[in-house]
Design a protein around this nucleic acid. Structure first.
Lengths: 187, 187
DNA sequence: GTAAAGATTGACTAATCAGTCAAATGTATA
DNA sequence: TATACATTTGACTGATTAGTCAATCTTTAC
């Protein structure tokens, strides 16, 4: 693994545990096994590291979901697939998930907006747009459906984590939660 | 207003804008119009201020909702009332809402848990328990329903804020979102 | 009026931090 | 081997920080 990836991985862990300003750049470099100055060869400032890590984690999630989408039709099954893969990613990548949440609710979030998020190639957004077009789901703004959908994922995820469910109990609630959200958005 | 309240109010604003570690205690004291040392008379450490502010904001929200609950029956109307008041509070108190979110997704969150949150007197939790008991809503764990309900509030709120809706458009979506969440949880 | 108790002050400290840079090390080419 | 180029190093700096405390001011009680 190259030094940049190691630095991003180390930063991820430390930021989630100690927060942004609670994590010194020197600590990241030390834990990553490189010199202090090396970090600043790869990331001009600490803020740039924080932003780069955010983009990297978003990409990791999107790649995971796109790669594993079962159905390419526009159907309940494809929504189910996106829902399942999203939850899977969150549960399999707790640090990355926490980092996204921490970042999204921090003052750093206002520094990104448009470019990073308004990606029309985002699988869920495309799916919702198509679902609305063929009157499979409710005639409401895409971003409204998107908010509802992702909020449901977050709610489910925080429930599973807070209650430390076993695998089979998890599956039950995931299935239940998807049926719930589908009932919400279907036309 | 007493100095403690002024300090809490100033801290709220600065923490939301600049983050926890991005806000110096000396800055809070300065903006609040008191000396540096005065802050530490009211809050032993910076962390204690952060925690006290969290509890204070939670209490503000609960008081608001309890005070304005229209119906004390166990009915769809009472769930609707809690939903509406919660959204109202979020929209009327953007700084406080943002602070809750920022705190909940920060490393500080793990320092609270049980005592602050497991309050059985929380209006929504009580309502859900009663709703399940009389088979008005689905026979699922209280905390699951709670997660779903609050997730819906968060999703709706982030949609309204991100799209900067006018008042009447807001009402439409709030109504729609409640009907959606009710469809999810009703038995 | 006065004395005791409590509240407020702000200069101060010891520690920590983001970012720099000249020197050292590694790598590729001819 | 020699030379050019890129990467890595870590000591260093100037700035900032949370928290302290002896001195000063304010309030209360009689």
């Amino acid at each position: 693994m190259d030094k940049k990836s190691i630095l991003l991985g180390t930063a991820l862990q430390l930021f989630v545990v100690n927060g942004f300003h609670g994590t010194a750049t020197s600590k990241i470099a030390q834990e990553a096994g490189v010199a202090n100055g090396t970090l600043f060869n790869y990331f001009k400032t600490k803020d740039e590291l924080i932003m780069a890590l955010y983009r990297s984690v978003l990409k990791h999630m999107d790649d995971f979901i796109i790669e594993r989408m079962e159905s390419h039709s526009i159907s309940k099954a494809s929504f189910r697939s996106v829902f399942m893969e999203t939850i899977s990613w969150c549960l399999d990548n707790p640090l990355r998930y926490q980092y996204l949440q921490q970042f999204n609710h921090s003052p750093y979030f206002k520094l990104v907006t448009s470019k990073v998020l308004n990606q029309d190639e985002h699988p869920l957004l495309v799916l919702i747009q198509n679902g609305i077009d063929i009157v499979l789901i409710k005639q409401l703004p895409i971003s409204f459906i998107y908010s509802i959908f992702t909020a449901q994922v977050n709610g489910l995820n925080s429930y599973i984590i807070a209650n430390d469910l076993e695998k089979d109990k998890q599956s039950e609630f995931i299935e239940e939660a998807f049926e719930m959200v589908w009932k919400m958005i279907e036309d």
